[in-house]
Design a binder for these strands. Structure first.
Lengths: 242, 242
DNA sequence: CGAACTTTTGACAAGCATCAACACGTGTGG
DNA sequence: CCACACGTGTTGATGCTTGTCAAAAGTTCG
């Protein structure tokens, strides 16, 4: 079907999860010119305000997008897993409106912006798959806005854990209630708009209720239904195919 | 150049603000099949969870997108002005992940989803303009997430007022520091994640500092620089052409 | 003119932030 | 292999921002 050994496979896997693509389209995607790079932990990939000429694809590890307020406070916008296109957004508008950095060691591929534009123009279905990817990404940000704007600390953290659990299963980086997720409580605070001290107290409450186990490097969900209830979580916004 | 009398003009004006389109592309857009409807205040256009087969275009008036938490709390996701495509997002994913309703009386046009897909496939530049529109829309949501997650009440409200002021100028519905904006303090609270009582106190503080005048139907910015400073506002995220 | 909505005010409570200190684990260099 | 530094997690005391509840005053519109 398609060259099984291309390093860009994780991207294709993610796109075809929601957009069917034929052999020509798949080959065109896998043959996109790219540059592979291995990055360490907390390496900046894109800085807000910079001109972007490449789109970055995450092949392994974890990354996050964020913005910084004038006060210095950081708001994480999304977390990213294997197969995610990290800055389809920034690629489209040229000047990055947010920053991106790795959370862990990560393998990434840089694709030239123009190559993406060309393949989208040549294969409309590919263009639609990019648009859909971008819209699903937007749906997750919208849910985060609801999370941060209207839910309390316990709900916010529970909700985030539910999301990451499901997305890791979809990405094939976890098979169930236990998964690697190397994130500090401070970063968890940046994602949910809570200080690290309050994150700590909230996580302890979740542990005490028997919902989760959690260390700096991995998470175990002990009570999936309970955690969803605690987080007011409903998976519809992830727009997964049935 | 293009038929000057098409009711879809405001959409074209908005798209061409950031994406140059040639005569063929412009005509194809203006000739899109559509159904014109005049709606009253607080009429729902799209309900979260519904299957979407049409894309709604706002020709006059104001609208907003929002989500509702399990507790019943509402989070507004964005506000919309003349020319905005209200659910490019929902059109792409079929099942709406958020709701849309009018804030005021409004003229809207409904475009069949498939007609948009077809015109985007036939004219790649049109497809790119849709993608860019969607990405700019996403950039605004990301800024709102920063706003709600990391700024205090006064900053949030000031920031929102700055955004609406600039976008109204860009949309041609205002020419300066004074503009119609029929929004209640409760709705302002939904947009910023604050209760209406606290919005009231905060608005009074902004008035007392001589930054704004504000009623239920319009806003006057008395001190533009001061309001931007109070709101930690920087326009880059709107991605306006220079 | 009255009904419904919106703004305003006050008293009080709660959730979360802030500040500070200490404990723990982990990796690194001497 | 130990010592140490550094990042992270944990705990406690305190206070501010914001939420909650309730009621009154003002506004809009049929």
């Amino acid at each position: 079907m398609n060259s099984p050994s291309s390093p860009l496979e994780p991207m294709l896997a993610k796109l075809t999860r929601h957009s069917p693509l034929n052999t020509h389209e798949r080959e065109a995607l896998l043959k996109l010119p790219h540059r592979l790079v291995r990055l360490g932990r907390r390496k900046m990939i894109v800085r807000e305000g910079e001109v972007v000429t490449q789109c970055c694809l995450l092949l392994s590890g974890f990354a996050s997008r964020y913005k910084v307020a004038g006060s210095g406070a950081m708001q994480m916008l999304s977390v990213h897993l294997r197969g995610d296109m990290l800055d389809l957004q920034n690629s489209v508008v040229e000047v990055a409106d947010h920053s991106i950095e790795t959370l862990t060691d990560a393998d990434v591929a840089f694709l030239p912006r123009q190559a993406l534009i060309d393949v989208a123009a040549e294969f409309p279905a590919v263009g639609r798959s990019f648009l859909k990817e971008s819209v699903i990404d937007g749906s997750i940000v919208r849910e985060w806005l609801l999370n941060v704007g209207q839910r309390n600390a316990k709900e916010r953290i529970s909700h985030l854990l539910c999301e990451v659990a499901l997305r890791q299963v979809a990405a094939g980086t976890s098979e169930g209630p236990q998964f690697d997720w190397p994130i500090t409580q401070e970063q968890l605070g940046h994602a949910t708009g809570i200080t690290s001290v309050h994150v700590n107290r909230t996580v302890q409450a979740l542990r005490a209720e028997g919902l989760i186990e959690m260390t700096t490097r991995n998470v175990t969900i002990l009570d999936w239904k309970g955690l969803q209830a605690a987080g007011d979580f409903s998976r519809a916004y992830l727009h997964e195919p049935a």
